[in-house]
C-alpha cells in the first residue's frame, strides 16, 4: 500500500472526482476491473452491451474510481530544525516532504503552505515546483501558517505538517481542531536530537539555534531530568494533535521517509512505501 492509498482508505478520505489516477475503490473512472451481472441501480452507461449479447444477461463494467488528491504540506524550516545529532532534522523533514509530494499522481495537486501564502496554482501540478516554494522568513510563524492553511486549502485536503512545534502554544489548539475537522491532517513531530541520551557532561556551553546561550554544569541529575522532560514534551504534543483529530507520527533524524510512512502504519522498502 502507498501513502496515497492509505490516504484514500482513510475514513475521511478526500474526494475530488475527476481525471486523476484510479484508486482502490470501485466507482466512476476509466480503469476496467471486471464484468459482473447487472444489479438494479447500476448506471446504464456502464452496461457492456457486447458482453450482454454474448452471455444473454445484462453485464456491467466495473471500473476503478478516479480521484485527484490535494496534498498540502507545512515544513518548519526555522533554525531550530537545523540541528541534529548526526545531521539536521530539516534533512529528514525534507525527505518526508519529498515522499509526501512523491505520492502525488495524475492530476493530484501539491501545495506548500507557508506563513506568506501557498504554492501558486500554476505550480501545484508539479511536486518539484511545490517543494521549491518556501517561506521568506527564517522564522517559523506557526500561527500564521496554520491560519493560511485553513483559509487557502480546499476542504478535504490531505495536509502534512512537519516541525518541532516549539512555537505551538496552547492557544493554537482550537486552530488545530478546526484544521482537523476540515482536512485530513497528519503531523510529524521532530524528535529531539537528544531524545536517546543527553551528550553533555560537566561544564558545557550551549548555544540555541534560534538565539540564547548558556554555560552550565550538567550532571546525572540534569541528564535524567532532561530525558524525562523531552519524553513528556513529545507525548504531550502527540496527544494534543491526536485530540485535534490529526494523524500523528514522529520525525526521526535518521529517516524522514520512514517517519512519514510510520505515521500511516506503513514501512519503506527500496521500491517505495509498502503496507
Amino acid at each position: 500500500m502507498t501513502i496515497r492509498e492509505a490516504l484514500l482508505r482513510a475514513r475521511r478520505r478526500p474526494r475530488h472526482l475527476g481525471a486523476g489516477s484510479p484508486t482502490i475503490y470501485r466507482g466512476d473512472g476509466y480503469e476496467f476491473v471486471e464484468l459482473r451481472a447487472y444489479v438494479s441501480g447500476d448506471d446504464v452507461r456502464r452496461i457492456d452491451w457486447a458482453a450482454t449479447a454474448r452471455s444473454g444477461e445484462l453485464q456491467t463494467r466495473v471500473v476503478l474510481e478516479d480521484v485527484a488528491l490535494t496534498l498540502a504540506a507545512i515544513l518548519d524550516e526555522s533554525p531550530s530544525m537545523r540541528v541534529g545529532r548526526r545531521r539536521p532534522l530539516l534533512d529528514a523533514g525534507r525527505e518526508a516532504l519529498q515522499t509526501w509530494f512523491g505520492a502525488a499522481t495524475g492530476e493530484d495537486r501539491c501545495i506548500r503552505v507557508t506563513a506568506d501564502g501557498v504554492t501558486p496554482p500554476a505550480l501545484q501540478r508539479t511536486p518539484h515546483a511545490a517543494l521549491g516554494f518556501t517561506a521568506r522568513s527564517d522564522r517559523f510563524d506557526v500561527t500564521r501558517t496554520l491560519r493560511t492553511a485553513r483559509a487557502a486549502l480546499p476542504r478535504g485536503t490531505a495536509l502534512l505538517a512537519i516541525g518541532d512545534w516549539y512555537e505551538l502554544d496552547e492557544s493554537l489548539d482550537r486552530e488545530l481542531s478546526a484544521l482537523g475537522a476540515r482536512f485530513d491532517c497528519t503531523a510529524l513531530i521532530a524528535r529531539d536530537p537528544w531524545y536517546d541520551g543527553l551528550p553533555l557532561g560537566g561544564l558545557v556551553r550551549l548555544r540555541g539555534a534560534e538565539g540564547g546561550y548558556t554555560r552550565a554544569y550538567v550532571g546525572p541529575r540534569e541528564r535524567a531530568a532532561f530525558m524525562e522532560a523531552v519524553r513528556r514534551r513529545e507525548e504531550r504534543l502527540l496527544r494534543r494533535f491526536e485530540l485535534a483529530n490529526w494523524r500523528t507520527g514522529v520525525l526521526r533524524e535518521a529517516d524522514g521517509a520512514q517517519s512519514l510512512a510510520g505515521a500511516f502504519g506503513l514501512r519503506v522498502r527500496l521500491s517505495g512505501v509498502e503496507g
Partner: peptide, 17 residues
C-alpha cells in the same frame, strides 16, 4: 553545542548555572 531551544533545555534539565 547547538540545541534547538535553549529556554526549553534550561527548563527541562535545570542545569546548575
Amino acid at each position: 553545542l547547538a540545541y534547538s531551544n535553549v529556554p526549553f533545555f534550561l527548563e527541562a534539565a535545570q542545569p546548575r548555572q
